[in-house]
């Protein structure tokens, strides 16, 4: 039994169905990447798992427990956190305040958690009193991820974390992802930078037109010629 299991998910927006029976699994401390063309439903899948969308059909379980349709503020308490692709920070709050919001549901002292995030991202400690709105894209991404880690999740959902970032920063993001996994968190990533993401992943899924097309280890997908031509850009 895996940490996160999503089975036969049918989901979409209003009357429009985008996912027609998708299944993915993530094991403890695994990095799993989902790739596919635009419109394949990758972001929709993450949003459905995190309770921002209600699936029409299908089940989701976290740590063996049914969580289909659970709303976000419940899921964060159960150990699942999510970083959206855009608008993923509070611009008028400082770095530290953004992180504090991540731990909003907790009472009591959050200093130890802040410390852990600052250890992972030393830059954030230096800039903790700066308004996030004034920071660069790469720095904001760090804040966004740090915020999601404040609750010590067992699994982190990342929606295209390297979108709109300069190439040198992209590598930093993937390094951070590895470091996060090494600290004991499973990670489910949706990515356009398929090659680099698969390179650090244990396993991957290829989604096309709202359906599973292929799955395997990160390496298997990278070495698959057919997929390589279609999505990985040769």
């Amino acid at each position: 039994m895996r940490l996160l299991e999503a089975r036969d998910i049918h989901s979409g927006y209003g009357d429009m169905e985008v996912l027609h029976g998708v299944s993915v699994e993530v094991g403890k401390e695994e990095i799993v990447t989902i790739i596919g063309p635009n419109g394949a439903g990758k972001s929709t899948l993450l949003k459905t798992i995190f309770g921002l969308l209600r699936p029409h059909k299908g089940e989701i379980s976290l740590d063996g427990r049914e969580v289909t349709g659970f709303p976000p503020h419940v899921l964060v308490r159960l150990g699942m956190c999510y970083v959206p692709q855009v608008d993923n920070v509070f611009p008028s709050l400082t770095v530290q305040e953004n992180l504090e919001m991540g731990a909003f549901v907790l009472r009591g002292d959050i200093k130890p958690r802040l410390e852990r995030v600052y250890e992972l991202f030393p830059l954030l400690r230096r800039r903790r009193r700066q308004r996030v709105g004034k920071m660069s894209g790469g720095e904001r991404q760090m804040v966004a991820m740090g915020r999601a880690l404040m609750l010590d999740p067992t699994i982190l959902l990342l929606d295209e974390p390297t979108a709109a970032l300069a190439p040198n920063l992209v590598e930093n993001v993937f390094q951070s992802v590895k470091a996060i996994r090494d600290s004991g968190v499973a990670i489910l990533i949706v990515e356009q930078n398929a090659k680099q993401s698969l390179a650090i992943s244990d396993r991957g899924y290829v989604l096309v037109d709202g359906r599973n097309r292929f799955q395997g280890t990160g390496r298997e997908i990278l070495e698959n010629e057919e997929i390589g031509k279609l999505f990985l850009g040769g």
Partner: peptide, 23 residues
Amino acid sequence: TKVGKAMRAMADNPELAQVTGIN
């Protein structure tokens, strides 16, 4: 205060506030 900061956060981005688990 925590609530005050959460109010500012919600003014910034209500969807993200939800995602963060803010009630």
